[in-house]
Design a binder for these strands. Structure first.
Lengths: 220, 220
DNA sequence: GACGACAGTCAACACCCTGTCGACTCCCCT
DNA sequence: AGGGGAGTCGACAGGGTGTTGACTGTCGTC
């Protein structure tokens, strides 16, 4: 994907303390507690006290490590994003080898990454509405992915594999948005959702028809 | 759309009081205040006291009319949904006349309805994560719309206008999900979004290619 | 080996928002 | 005229957040 994760943030200095000392365990303990608790209840139902207790510290001490609940989630999100970027790798640069297989690989890898951290992903989606930081980070990441897909679509059009049509950017936005919402529904399990087993193939089908007007695009 | 809005709820008894008396003005005042305030700040930043003050009553009195903040939003959502159902009408029953025109009409009408109440729609999307009632209602409505689209796709396949492919239900879910998320981004204005002017045509293009494999499906 | 500096810790406080209770007023109907 | 219910709100209890200030331990340094 050549997504080049511009180092807009350190992703490890979210909590304070540029320090190095042993209290790092506590920070990790808070993070671990958060991810564990998130699997049982909603983010809003977890109090700072819960996080502190879970990490074996008092509530005021929590504030020594993080400026608030949201910062914890933000750190968790940072990690998931990093993992997703790594998983995506450079598949989009090798599209022409076998377009269908590569697009599928891309979607499947994102699916695996998000599915592996569904609690965090779900919590972020919920908090995005109320927390500007999460919203900003997610917008930034999405923009990167959209740009990568946009470039890939333009590449496919240039080599004659995909027909002209919508502006590549608009198409990329629509497809990425679809994935986000469909995954959310599948992981959350409320409302109409595609079965987890099928979701990658359903998404792939829509991507291929929207980009190529066929489900069997030609290799180079 | 023949969506037959099964009367699962009265949509007007959300606040309490089966009554008829003059205090209805207050209820309306609360609703109006909520929609007005929602245009300036996020739902979470509006306190019950704000709502009460805005309606010229005290905070405890607010509870006489609504069981809580969320119920106000729920009532507002009910109205928008009713309006959307009415706007959709029976376009999907007349698809064969001119598929492209009808699908466009459907999408454009939903766009107009949601765009006319973007504050409410945005707030609901944000609250869906934390409020089970909103989540349930939205899931129920979405299920109805998905079913309508699913039936329409099957109809188009039966008359030979659309090729076979994904299960119609999965396709309907994916497309509806895309619309929801794309509209949200367009209205919210954060993160990558399709320009409001283009959004209907972008969505339409993806719907048509996903359903028909062409942007110019044949009429009956 | 005494001492300042600083990471780490928490009891206690001030604050804000929610939801509830009980008392009060008004008005309508009998 | 008077009993009942709609409508109203002051005052309270409870729970969550964020901050302050004092305490502890452990370094490196002179």
């Amino acid at each position: 994907m050549t997504t080049a994760r511009t180092p807009t943030r350190a992703a490890s200095t979210r909590g304070r303390r540029p320090g190095r000392s042993a209290g790092d365990d506590r920070e990790l303990a808070i993070l671990a507690t958060a991810e564990r608790l998130l699997e049982r209840r909603a983010f809003g139902d977890i109090s700072i006290d819960d996080l502190a207790k879970g990490a074996g510290i008092s509530r005021p001490t929590f504030y020594f490590y993080f400026p608030g609940k949201d910062a914890v989630l933000l750190t968790l999100l940072d990690r998931v994003i990093e993992e997703a970027d790594a998983a995506a790798g450079d598949v989009l640069d090798r599209l022409a080898e076998d377009p269908r297989a590569r697009w599928r690989e891309l979607i499947a890898r994102f699916h695996a990454t998000f599915g592996g951290h569904r609690a965090v992903v779900l919590a972020c989606a919920q908090v995005r509405g109320t927390n500007a930081e999460v919203r900003r980070l997610w917008a930034e990441v999405l923009e990167r992915w959209v740009r990568a897909v946009e470039a890939a679509i333009e590449g496919e059009r240039r080599r004659g594999a995909a027909p002209d049509g919508l502006p590549a950017r608009d198409l990329a936005i629509a497809l990425n948005s679809m994935n986000e919402r469909v995954w959310y529904a599948t992981f959350a399990g409320d409302g109409p959702a595609v079965a987890e087993r099928d979701v990658v193939d359903v998404l792939l089908d829509v991507w291929l028809t929207a980009i190529y007007r066929t489900t069997t695009p030609p290799p180079a």
